[in-house]
Structure formats: C-alpha cells, structure tokens
C-alpha cells in the first residue's frame, strides 16, 4: 500500500487534533500506529478510513485522493475494510447476515453468491457453527472475528483496525490477533492501531508513534521499540510495558 500525506490538518471546532502531518510511505504491508490516548491516532485512522474529512492538506491512499465530499468518501470506503474496538456487528442480524449485508447492498452481489462467499469465509476461519447466531449469543472474540470476516469479505485493498482487541477479555485477544496475522500472511495489507506491543513488534513493517497531534517518531519496529532515542517514545513504552516483562 502507498500513502502520501501532505500537510494534513484536522480540527474539531477550535481544537486542532492533527497539525500539518506529512508522510510518504511506499510498499508498506502493515502499518502500526501506537501512542498515548488522545494523541490523535484514532483520528488519523478514521481519516484514512474515509470517515472523517480533513480540514486542510492532501492525502493519497493507493490511487485514491481523499476528498472532503461525503459522496466521494462513501465511494472510497467501499474499497477498504474497517474494524472497530467493539460492537461492530449489528445486533438484529445473525453472523451470516452481518457479512451478507454489505455484499448485497453495497457491492451488488446476488443473495446466493453473497451467502456462498460468506459461508466459505466463516468456514475458512472455523466460525461456520456460529453462522446463524446473533451477536448476543457470541463471545467478544467470536464477534470480533466475524466483524473481521465482514470487513475482508468485500475484498478490500487494505484493512483498518482500531484497537481491535482493547475491549476484549484477555483470553480472547490471541484468537483475534491470530486471525489478523493469518490474513496478513495471506497478503492482506493492514493499518492497525493497537496497544498490543508484542503483536505490533512482530507484525509491523513500519511503526508510527503519534502524540501531540503529529508523528513524533517513525521507523521499523526495531528502530522504534529497541533503539528509539525519542524520550516521548521511551517513556510511553516504559509505561505500557511495565508489567509485561
């Protein structure tokens, strides 16, 4: 995936969340965003997801120029997959129906094709026994894995994940991360916001440390996690990793 960001600024009212951010990345297969809460990483991700128009600047993602009009952003969103922290699934639909909904309504597949496709995905990730269940009947980890299935069912150019394991009970974290890793190994490009530093370290090609409305540090996982001389990064890592050693 290719990212070309030039002087991007995002304001909510008078509050400037991202302040003239520039970035050029090519051939990155998994980009991980880390940083303290309120530093702007979720806003950054939402902008890349086409959910939030920017205030000024320019962004190119692959061949898409992100515009400020909702219509064009809607068109752009059809090419990407997005997974949130929690409550991704629609509670009134079964797991299968959740996956089928965007396929038939947004991507123009026939109901039969969509169902075949959804079933094969569920089967592939050992979730077929849950196809008919509503989200209430599923564990947090199962819900999240089905949400990821829904996001990849549309064959997106890349997958955006906003802290996909933060709202889960710890016992479910690994099954979700396993699924993400599996997808990545099969060639799915990722942009991931996470607090799972171990996963970030092993799965990322490139890491952005976002704090105070900008990219405070960037580089390969080794550069960020092991050799960073940026005191903000090391202080953050010290705190996050305090009880994991």
């Amino acid at each position: 995936m290719r990212l070309n960001i030039l002087d991007m600024t995002k304001e909510f009212g008078n509050h400037r969340v991202l302040d003239s951010v520039s970035l050029y990345l090519e051939d990155v297969r998994s980009l991980v965003l880390i940083g303290p809460s309120g530093g702007g990483k979720t806003t950054f991700l939402r902008i890349l997801a086409g959910l939030e128009p920017i205030t000024s600047g320019e962004i190119m993602v692959n061949d898409h120029r992100l515009s400020c009009s909702e219509e064009k952003l809607l068109e752009y969103r059809k090419h990407i997959g997005m997974v949130y922290q929690a409550y991704n699934l629609f509670p009134h639909l079964s797991a299968l129906e959740n996956i089928i909904l965007p396929l038939t309504r947004v991507h123009g597949m026939t109901k039969r094709d969509a169902e075949d496709h959804a079933r094969s995905l569920l089967k592939r990730f050992h979730l077929e026994e849950h196809a008919a269940k509503r989200p209430v009947a599923l564990s947090g980890g199962q819900q999240q894995r089905i949400a990821i299935c829904r996001a990849v069912a549309i064959k997106p150019e890349f997958l955006l994940l906003d802290e996909p394991t933060s709202a889960l009970d710890p016992e479910y974290t690994s099954e979700v991360l396993d699924l993400i890793r599996e997808l990545h190994e099969e060639g799915m490009d990722l942009i991931l916001v996470t607090h799972e530093m171990g996963f970030a370290h092993s799965a990322a090609d490139y890491v952005l440390f976002i704090s105070d409305g900008g990219i405070s540090a960037q580089g390969s996982p080794a550069e960020i996690f092991e050799q960073s001389e940026n005191h903000r990064v090391s202080r953050f890592l010290d705190k996050v990793l305090k009880y994991t050693k």
């Binding site: 997801a49 969103r77 997005m82 949130y84 991704n88 965007p102």
Partner: peptide
C-alpha cells in the same frame, strides 16, 4: 448506538440504507 451508525458508514451504506437496514 452511534457505533452502529458509524459501522454502517464504514461498510459503505448510504444514509437511507442505514435507516432501512440497520
């Protein structure tokens, strides 16, 4: 919940479709 509306946007549903199907 607003997360559902947000999810509907993210998967590419229009506003009208969001009301109708979600």
């Amino acid at each position: 919940g607003s997360t559902q509306i947000e999810t509907a946007r993210a998967i590419g549903l229009t506003k009208r479709q969001t009301y109708r199907f979600v």
